[in-house]
Design a protein around this nucleic acid. Structure first.
Lengths: 335, 335
DNA sequence: CTGTTAGCGCCTTCAA
DNA sequence: TTGAAGGCGCTAACAG
């Protein structure tokens, strides 16, 4: 059984291929009677229009390119879940690009994306820098292909539509909560690699500490457990620093820190209060359960897809920065 | 700047479009000199062939459809990482389909896949049943599109190429290890939903227990923490059953069980030895660290993509069941 | 080694 | 309301 073409359908239904095309794309322009006849034949033959021919003729692909840094990060995967659910509503298909591969030139990849004829681009990359941002913007303008950034912030410009939460505010808020609980020696555990969103959390933390007239303590480490465990242990060996409060930019870093502290005989939350960021499964599976900022990551994905759809439909989205609401969940590490 | 076409390139390079097409697809058939001239123009114009026109004319898409049940499961995401890395080697692009959506008819989706002109299909779904398997097989035969199952086992047939580990053996092995450690009251924690791979782990467990002349104890629960915690507590309330060994079909279920036991005052590993399955990040982040079967999930993805590529190139893969090697990692929960 | 010429399967005016 | 006809951008014989 080979694929049926529009021609087969037309023949069997006793109409021209133009009519078949119309019943599929502009049903209102076809008389009800013939329309039904055509649809019946389409069903019988299991006909589905060839996506290439359709794309070539209509110059639209009904597909969007999804660009992510690394699928194995829980937040990325969850965002993709949100995107797929929303995309399905519009019958859009997704072409996946993963940036993880080091020897993959991003500019090359973007060329591929354009060549793929995607109608829009969803871009996720919390390490985004000026060069990348500019490149995206150029592509959007040159090729008239709409782009939406999902959970990806470039705060120095606002040409591209962006969906995220207010990371600065979140960082500020949880630092304040630690201060309200009487904590003074509060540390920020962040990544050594430069992530825009983490910089914002850091800025919020710094603001709250400054306002309280307290010294800031920032530890730049890795997301890798074996690496950050060493760093956390060094914290004490070197200076015998006192720590009674911590905010970590990722749940998994918070959990790793908690484990290290417990191994050193510290009591959580009595000796040290800890907040994480994201509310991943790690937060519920660790002991004590992790208090954290709840980032509505699935909604971010869905909202980004929704805005992209609007832009693909030609409605320019005026609101460039779209900030979703976040919660703070209090669990065992801050009781 | 609008997209350059092959015609623009031909004109500027002073050749026919056929020559441009050749320098791209069959460079050896073009004289070095003209080839270089054409390539120069291609570079100047930033020309990339339109994927639709190319696909339509050549009847190949250089893309594969990737079908997954739910992106947010750590093992699925990691497999996708493996697939993308391998696909990139061959310059194949990936079209992503997520089955999670309940009101998405799988047969409809497969029709879409065929219409998308994907050259091959990578299918991941550990809940696969007879109906689905048959449907896939029909599609492979009717449309001549190769299909490879990744970490997806349908043990009752072997028409489709499959990549996975020997889950039966793994289940048998870790049960044996628990027995070797002198454990007698060994429980299997598995999913209530019917997953083929979990059935195999269960069969391995049952075999080992039978051989040892011991009674089997199987708890069917959910992957959801809030649900399984209740189940685990009931285990004791109801019958005061003794438990001294556990194998869980997923790391996250094992971790949830460990937490519940510790909350009830049990000592791990002294009172109860625990093994998980997969070696996800959860295994390293929980305390005590979880012993588990190390499933080479990234390799499974990569190998599946590699075999699919072979099939797409017309080389039929004789070896239908491709079993990758697994390890067992001993950590704190079985010391 | 290179150019000419048909399509690939569909959409979309333009006429009827 | 329907049909005819010309392309969309590219590949792949077939000539030369």
């Amino acid at each position: 059984m080979n694929k049926a073409t529009i021609y087969n359908v037309a023949l069997k239904a006793g109409v021209s291929l133009a009519t078949v095309s119309r019943t599929l794309n502009n049903p209102e322009k076809v008389k009800l009677e013939t329309r039904e006849r055509v649809l019946k034949v389409i069903d019988e033959l299991g006909y589905k229009p060839n996506a290439f021919a359709k794309g070539l003729a209509s110059r639209k692909s009904t597909s969007v390119a999804v660009i992510v840094p690394d699928m194995s990060r829980a937040s990325i995967a969850e965002m993709v879940n949100g995107i797929t659910a929303e995309a399905r509503k519009y019958q859009y298909s997704l072409i996946l690009y993963v940036l993880k591969d080091e020897n993959l030139e991003e500019s090359e990849m973007l060329k591929e994306v354009v060549a793929s004829q995607a109608d829009g681009i969803l871009y996720m990359n919390d390490e985004i820098n000026e060069e990348q941002y500019t490149m995206l913007n150029t592509i959007q303008e040159d090729y008239k292909v709409p782009i939406v950034l999902a959970n990806t912030l470039y705060p120095y410009d606002n040409k591209l539509v962006t969906v995220c939460i207010d990371y600065f505010k979140a960082g500020y808020e949880i630092t304040k909560r630690l201060l309200d609980k009487g904590r003074k020696n509060i540390f920020l555990l962040t990544t050594a690699r430069k992530y825009m969103v983490n910089d914002l959390k850091e800025a919020g933390y710094i603001k709250a500490m400054k306002e309280a007239g307290l010294e800031t303590n920032i530890v730049r480490t890795s997301g890798d457990i074996s690496v950050n465990t060493v760093h956390f242990n060094e914290l004490f060996r070197d200076s015998g620093k006192k720590i009674d409060g911590v905010l970590a930019v990722r749940d998994s870093i918070a959990v790793s820190f908690i484990n290290t502290m417990i191994d050193r005989g510290k009591k959580i939350p009595k000796d040290i209060n800890v907040y994480g960021f994201q509310n991943t499964k790690y937060a519920s599976l660790c002991r004590p359960k992790l208090s954290c900022v709840d980032v509505p990551i699935l909604d971010i994905g869905a909202k980004a897809m929704k805005l992209l759809k609007q832009e693909m439909d030609g409605e320019t989205v005026e609101q460039k920065f779209n900030v979703l609401h976040h919660d703070i969940i209090e669990r065992g590490t801050t009781k």
